[in-house]
């Protein structure tokens, strides 16, 4: 899972507490994929179990978050040699696309077009408005937030994450437009076929 490798890669910079690690992660990615602190420590514990990070003891880093003062959470971690090679491996390996992430919208439309009595056009329009609204939000953040004029590498990183969200949303809107156009064409063809029922085969030929 990428959060694990991302945390490990950030730890290469030097020892950190869990809270710092989370802050560094969110500095680069905004709150697009929020990490809860429990998740951060669970991941650190597993990384330690697997020999990829080690505890460097208490103190050393300037932890300012007083929300949690229990001693086991004041521990800082650093990447081990094995951890470093896992990070290099991660950067060297393309993210696989062979297993497409589950796409709820594609699944929803795929089911909807096969069921009688579902208004696919309305589903598409509602989705397009919702996706467009997100696209407007991302664009607003891009032109007004710290991503607008990035001065630090972490700001540039956040601006690139926003670009990824923008391109993703744009692709979804384009796909919805495409679905709408194809469904309209299919509906028109179906009407045509019904009208020329005796010559159905010819109409199908013509539609191609």
């Amino acid at each position: 899972m990428s959060i694990r490798q991302a945390m490990l890669a950030i730890l290469e910079q030097g020892p950190m507490y869990g809270y710092q690690l989370r802050a560094e992660f969110e500095q680069r990615t905004g709150e697009t994929w929020p990490l809860n602190i429990g998740q951060v420590y669970t991941t650190l514990t597993r990384l330690e179990r697997d020999g990829l990070v080690e505890v460097v003891g208490h103190g050393g880093a300037d932890e300012t978050d007083q929300a949690d003062t229990s001693s086991d959470r004041q521990v800082s971690y650093r990447a081990t040699e094995a951890g470093r090679s896992e990070v290099s491996e991660w950067f060297a390996t393309p993210v696989p696309r062979s297993q497409p992430p589950r796409d709820e919208l594609a699944i929803k439309l795929a089911i909807a077009v096969t069921l009688p009595g579902v208004d696919v056009g309305t589903i598409i329009q509602r989705q397009r408005s919702a996706t467009m609204a997100s696209l407007q939000d991302y664009t607003r953040l891009k032109r007004t937030g710290r991503a607008a004029t990035p001065t630090e590498p972490a700001d540039l990183a956040w601006s690139l994450v926003l670009d990824a969200l923008v391109f993703d949303a744009e692709a979804e809107v384009r796909w919805l437009d495409h679905c709408e156009a194809r469904l309209r064409r299919a509906a028109a063809d179906a009407t045509e076929v019904r009208r020329q029922a005796p010559a159905a085969t010819t109409a199908e030929e013509a539609a191609r």
Binding site: Q125, S129, M132, L135, T139
Partner: peptide, 24 residues
């Protein structure tokens, strides 16, 4: 282009001469 429309405060969708939806 959706990416360009996203610079707007409001996006109005037209279909067959009718406003079918808009984002606030």
């Amino acid at each position: 282009e959706a990416r360009h429309a996203a610079w707007a405060d409001r996006v109005v969708f037209l279909r067959d001469g009718v406003v079918v939806d808009e984002t606030g």
